[in-house]
Simulated scan of single mutants.
Amino acid sequence: MSERTATIASSVGLHARPAAIFTEAAAELDLEITIAMAGEPADDAMDATSILSIMSLGAAHGDVVVLRAEGAGADEALDSLVKILETDHDATA
């Protein structure tokens, strides 16, 4: 099983807009991907394709989450999802 940690970069945390961007990207992948707050047991991880699950994490700016996936392409998939989480989608251009 592949695993990555990511620090939430969006200034107001993993709320509706960044959560939607993240879940849409996760749903496009042919893998089961889970997300949990760092330090939580792997058994408590939630489905990364569910916007309700993502928002219920309550991940704030600077919080660390753990992504896990298994299967072909898991490492690359997790790397791409980490980039999404570590981008401030609330920053103004």
Rank of each mutant, 00 (worst) to 15 (best):
E70R: 11
I21V: 13
I8F: 08
H89C: 04
M37W: 03
F22K: 00
H89W: 15
D79N: 14
A60Q: 11
D88E: 12
K83N: 08
A91Q: 14
H61K: 13
A69V: 11
T34Y: 01
D79Y: 08
H61P: 12
T34W: 02
E76R: 06
T92N: 14
E28N: 15
T7E: 09
A59C: 12
S53T: 15
T49M: 10
S10G: 02
I21E: 00
L57V: 15
L14D: 00
T5E: 11
A45T: 13
I51H: 10
A9W: 14
A36T: 02
L14G: 06
H89K: 14
A9C: 07
A93F: 10
A59P: 04
T87D: 05
P41K: 05
S56E: 13
E86N: 03
A91K: 12
I35D: 01
A25M: 07
D47H: 11
S56L: 11
I51T: 08
A6V: 09
A48E: 03
A25L: 01
T7C: 04
L78C: 13
F22N: 00
A59T: 10
L67K: 09
A26S: 12
D47N: 12
A20I: 10
T7N: 09
S11Q: 06
E24Y: 03
G71F: 03
S11D: 07
E76A: 08
G39D: 15
A42M: 03
S2N: 14
A26M: 01
A59F: 06
S53V: 04
R4W: 05
S56H: 04
D75L: 01
T87S: 11
E40A: 12
T34N: 02
L29E: 15
L57Q: 06
D47S: 10
E32L: 00
E28L: 13
E40Y: 05
G62R: 05
E86Y: 10
E3Y: 05
A60S: 15
K83P: 07
S56W: 07
R17W: 07
V66F: 04
V82Q: 05
A16D: 09
A27G: 09
H15E: 01
D63W: 11
A60T: 10
H89E: 02
I33S: 01
E86M: 12
I54S: 05
E70C: 03
A25C: 04
S53D: 14
D43H: 01
I33F: 01
L85Q: 09
E28T: 14
P18V: 05
L78M: 13
L31M: 04
G73K: 02
L57R: 00
R4E: 10
H61I: 07
I51M: 08
E28D: 15
D79F: 06
R68K: 15
A20V: 11
E76G: 12
G39H: 12
A69W: 04
D43P: 01
V64A: 14
A59K: 05
G73E: 03
G62D: 14
D30W: 04
R68Q: 15
A69Y: 11
M55D: 00
L85M: 02
V65T: 03
D90F: 13
L29Q: 13
A20M: 04
D43L: 08
H61F: 03
L14S: 02
T7Q: 12
S56Y: 07
T92L: 15
L57T: 12
G71M: 02
H89D: 04
R4C: 02
L81D: 07
E24C: 08
G73V: 06
M1W: 14
I8Q: 00
A48D: 11
